[in-house]
Nucleic acid binder design. Structure first.
Lengths: 207, 207
DNA sequence: CCGATAGTGAACAACGTGTTCGTTTTCTGT
DNA sequence: ACAGAAAACGAACACGTTGTTCACTATCGG
């Protein structure tokens, strides 16, 4: 095709810009990174930036779209298959914690204290999709003790709280331990909120 | 005293600026509010602003300091007295939800989607103090299933998740119902994480 | 080697920030 | 009531960031 080479060039420029943004987010935090910083770091002309992205936020969102695609495919798929339906497992947890461990620098930039509100919102949205996928299958209908949306937001926030603590503390324990803590704290409450779902297996508690 | 009246003038100016900021946060979100916006709304000279505050963030923090003082006094005090020690009650919850209900506009500005990361951080810190006060008394020492810091961050995030949902949905249920949901979701998990603490009384579950 | 497509960078206007400084308002002590 | 101190005022400034424009250069396919 005629457009092949141009496409590669375009893709390279976009990647340069995104990498520069990620680097700078790690150093300074999203809010304080300036477009001038980004194009200097990426060695890209000012007008080139605006030819690709509307503004700094558009660049960020394009990065999140990649992350979203990866996570929904690699983390969102596994748990449903591994366990039968109608079983509350929160299977996304361990898979995602492993991904966090492998890319802890990236996640630190996303979840860290100085990354802006948009960053948190987008990330929360991604995780909420993973959680909702599993929980909505468990609560087909009927009167719940707590609205499903509340349970989803609760679960996401709880997971992100633990994940943030883990990253802030330089990951002093294994992903499996974090996963166990997450289940210890959340599974009983969720089971109480979705009474018709069955209970977490007792073996989870030991070790 | 000689300085009395000047002090009142100073206080009035500071209040004008803080009120203007709160109004504008509700309309536009913290990040996009400009100092020019603030001093226009407050009818205050530019140099006067900088005579009182270093920048926009300092003004915001002065507002949070007031909120922190109020909450630690009025919300943090009650629960400890109402129940015996060594009893897991999370008593801050209902008191705080009532305060949220009375000042929902203010809380919407704080917790809303478009309020910056600093806003969330500060607010999280305030609530974390309330939670830590109660939880640290319950877990004197010994091996916990989950580190105390994790339980605190978990509890705070869970509470703020529910509170945010409540405000976003225009508060479709009572503060008491929100309080019940919060307890249903979190108490069992916390009890499992702090094994030596006793369990929530069963009466809590019914209506 | 031509032409299309992508990237370059200087220049610009608009806006926000934080400072300075001379002026005006407001209140207090006498 | 009046002098003087304390506080607020606002114009002007230097500076940095944003987003646009435009004439240019580089790269690649045919």
């Amino acid at each position: 095709m005629a457009a092949r080479a141009e496409d590669r060039r375009v893709q390279r420029t976009r990647t340069l810009l995104l990498d520069a943004l990620m680097e700078l987010m790690l150093e300074k935090g999203y809010e304080t990174v300036t477009i001038q910083d980004i194009i200097d770091r990426a060695n890209v002309g000012r007008s080139t930036f605006y030819a690709h992205f509307l503004d700094k936020e558009a660049l960020l969102l394009s990065g999140f779209e990649q992350l979203r695609l990866f996570l929904t495919e690699h983390v969102g798929a596994a748990p449903v298959a591994a366990n039968g339906p109608n079983r509350l497992t929160l299977g996304f947890s361990l898979a995602m914690l492993h991904h966090v461990q492998s890319h802890h620098m990236t996640y630190r930039a996303i979840v860290g204290k100085q990354s802006g509100a948009i960053v948190h919102q987008q990330f929360q949205r991604i995780v909420a999709d993973l959680v909702k996928r599993e929980l909505s299958a468990l609560a087909p209908s009927g009167a719940l003790a707590v609205p499903l949306d509340v349970v989803v937001q609760y679960t996401v926030s709880a997971f992100l709280a633990l994940m943030t603590w883990w990253l802030d503390q330089k990951m002093p324990c294994s992903a499996e331990e974090m996963d166990r803590m997450f289940r210890t704290l959340t599974l009983p409450g969720i089971a109480a909120a979705l009474p018709q779902g069955d209970w977490p297996s007792r073996e989870r508690r030991e070790t």
